[in-house]
Computed example of a mutant assay.
Amino acid sequence: MLQVDALSFGYKKRTILTDISLNVHKGQMVSIVGPNGTGKTTLIKCLAGIQRPRGGSILINGKDAFGMHRREHARCVGYVPQSSPSKFPIIVFEAVLMGRRPYITWKPTQIDFEKTARVIESMNLKDIALRDFDKLSGGQKQKVMLARAIAQDTDVLLLDEPTSNLDLKHQLEVLEMISSLVETNQMAAVLAMHDLNLASRFSHRMVMMKEGQVLCSGTPSEVMTPENISTVYGIHAVVSQNEGHPYILPTGTVG
């Protein structure tokens, strides 16, 4: 569904991404992990079509992502940025309805309104549907932006730190919702994540990056090793298993 081959990106003489390759199939959640400044957000933006790579290719359902018309691309790929707009003077229902824009030719149809209402109800946003977006908390705004992307009804969902503004309960709620959508609708989801344990718990595959390159990729058990964590994060960690999912306990810094 999403195929990335030898992707590179940079600004003038500064290289950010080098030779990034990955495949994401239907029904898969793939987490991109790595320390700050390693290129996770830049990679997500390239996949979303916001940044144009220097080289390599991105195929969505076998089509060149940068050869698509913007409306076609928007029907295939939904994107949720790390931070919400500082000013968005509309109510929550209208914010989620904006996810239907790729399908609207003149004005929203009854189908668009009904789909928006279903997404709002499924994400437990009904109580704030008529509130001003600007007056929401950071966590509420993040959930609304995710709801907008879900209403977009795409094959691929790209999320940059989707749990960054959420408390623990809502982190689990959002990731469980994404996981359910991916499985039920046979979508592909790529998430830039900081929390290794959450990434391990919900991902089918993980891609661990260091300095703009892929150090390793595979199942969480293949990626979450003490050696990889030491190399990428500069810490010692104990890796244990819980219900088949590896999780780490940091024990100290390297050196």
Rank of each mutant, 00 (worst) to 15 (best):
G67Y: 02
H236V: 10
R201F: 10
V119R: 08
N36T: 02
I16E: 03
K126I: 14
L215T: 07
G234C: 01
S240E: 15
A65N: 08
S164F: 02
S31C: 11
S240M: 14
M145W: 10
K210A: 05
T253W: 11
E211P: 00
I50A: 03
Q186H: 15
L2Q: 06
P35W: 00
G218F: 08
D160I: 02
S203H: 09
C46F: 04
T18E: 14
Q171I: 07
A129C: 14
T184V: 14
F133G: 08
L166K: 06
V214W: 07
P102K: 03
N165D: 03
W106S: 07
E227Y: 08
A192D: 06
P35K: 04
R52M: 05
Q213V: 11
F202K: 09
L17N: 07
L130K: 15
K13M: 04
P81S: 04
K169L: 04
V77L: 02
M193D: 06
E222W: 06
E114M: 12
F93G: 05
T109D: 10
P108G: 10
P102F: 05
I60N: 02
N36W: 02
N197E: 04
I32E: 00
E183I: 13
N124W: 04
S200Q: 10
V174R: 02
S240V: 11
K143T: 02
I120L: 08
V33D: 03
R131W: 07
D64P: 07
T231F: 05
R54F: 00
M224N: 08
V33W: 00
T15K: 13
T225C: 06
E173Y: 11
T15D: 04
N165T: 02
A74E: 09
I60P: 01
M177Q: 10
A129F: 12
T41W: 01
F113T: 06
V239I: 15
S122T: 14
V239R: 03
M177V: 06
H245F: 09
G218E: 11
F9C: 06
Y103F: 14
T105V: 08
K210L: 10
V207W: 09
F88C: 09
I91E: 14
F202I: 15
G55W: 00
S203N: 10
K143V: 11
T184D: 15
T225Y: 01
A95F: 04
K63R: 15
D112P: 07
V30S: 03
L172F: 13
A237K: 03
T105Q: 13
G10P: 09
K13Y: 02
M145P: 13
A189L: 01
G62S: 09
S217C: 09
G62A: 04
N36S: 09
L198H: 12
T105H: 11
G255Q: 12
N165F: 13
P108L: 04
N165K: 01
V119M: 05
D160Y: 08
I32T: 05
I32G: 01
